[in-house]
Nucleic acid binder design. Sequence first.
RNA 1: GGCCCAUUCGUCUAGUCGGCCUAGGACGCCAGGUUUUCAUCCUGGAAAUCGGGGGUUCGAAUCCCCCAUGGGUCACCA
Length: 502
Amino acid sequence: MVRVRFAPSPTGPLHIGGVRTALYNYFFARKNKGKFILRIEDTDQSRYVSGAEEYILESLAWCGIQFDEGINIGGEYGPYRQSDRTGIYREYINILIQKGAAYYAFETPDELNQIRKEYESRGETFQYGINNRMNLKNSLSLPASEVKKLLDTSHPHVIRFKVPEAKEVTVNDLIRDEIKVNSIIIDDKVLFKSDGMPTYHLANIVDDHLMKISHVIRGEEWLPSLPLHVLIYQAFDWEVPEFAHLPLILRPDGKGKLSKRDGDRLGFSVYPISWQDPKTKEIYRGFREDGYYSEAFVNMLALLGWNPGDDREIMSMEEMIEAFDLKDVHKSGARFDPIKARWFNHVYLQKRDIKLVAQEFKDELSKVNINVTLEEAVFVAELMRERVDFVKDLVTEAIFFFKTPETLDPKAIKKWGTDNSAQWLKDILLIINDIEPFDSEKIDEALNNYLKEKNVKAGNFFNTLRICIVGTSKGPHLSTIMQFIGKQETINRIERGISYFE
RNA sequence: GGCCCAUUCGUCUAGUCGGCCUAGGACGCCAGGUUUUCAUCCUGGAAAUCGGGGGUUCGAAUCCCCCAUGGGUCACCA
């Protein structure tokens, strides 16, 4: 039975790398008819950020990533919030101590820092482990009586993992195959903190075991601690799950992994939905608020580090689940490309049910105090959507359907205007009144007749007219716009435009 | 610095066990065509000597070794 989990820490908003990890876990669970679990890893109370948990839930929901067990919905392996499981960790750390696989250590953080500095000044790196643990203050080096005394007086202490003697540890990764590490380079990591909470390394493994997780699919940043984790499983005599470490998502320019600063700097989101820092009140933009459809966002994100093995790029959630295989996940990091991200949304916008697009367009318009009927919105959206990537861009691109242009683009006037332009406009004004009904077909007929009669260049003529109607030399078929805004408004705009060409 | 991971067009990538790769697709870019304009759309183009160097082989992007570069990680954070 495949059981996978997504286990974020509620320390802030979920970065798109985290969303992708959740997504791949979800793909894998669904593809293999398994279960997907959401567990909250909040063992570090000092880093807890209020609202982060809700943010995670909302982000996953927006993306259409559904889980089968976890916080809020429960399940038979709960509780799913680590802060609700402290008793369990205590129980298991004691097992490790009894087995001699863990020990008490009495240095304070300050003392440790001091020691690190000393090593550093000698050009060495301090490592609490096999080579020096007998020279440090712990239950391995101190006489039993001394240890007992320290423990009885509640002297602050942590519990460390006792890395077994130096030996080659071979671990397996589904994406990278075998990785060999000598345990001599692994620290005696803290498993239990002096505040009575476990660290990630303990809590994560205990929970994965207790929750019967079959595959641990997580970010590449965890790869260095994989040998330690395997050693802990072995110390417990537990079966080791399968591991898959996902490649990083890199920043579009420069070096390193994507960070929240990149978004601000380069003008795109690195979060699925927007987030306001509760302390600084700073607002981080999100893909949702930037106007992305969640389907486009998810599609784009899934292809950053994975592909179905063929040329398909536009894929639904179902198609991706069907095609997903950990073997096709890449080994190297993928640079995030905000321009291609826009393209994905463009494609989804074109495919979307026009009624939905129109309703969204209508809502956007009402935000700028333009109220239209759904029919009008459908008409304009159908005409204009191929020109934009986002519905909200429709507002700026199609504003001339609803409002008289504020100014007429001088550049366009310079390019298309002629000495005759003003006269053409005056002539058209006379013709236009007689066009009945005032529809696209009749308008075209009248304008083309005029064109033929006067023998003028179509480009200059139509653009002169267009600049008056639209404000600049672009947009869909002119007579369609004129029909939409109606005869009177057309006349008004032309009258207003004449002076620009004189 | 130690350890680990990675390395195909600017970017995302295809490339089953070495031959069909004079390296394919997509985004972006450029040109032409369609369009009364702009955009869309269509067609075409430039774009990777497969990080470099050695091998193995009749033959290597694909196997082996070395090097370089990039990244990750070295907390009582996850």
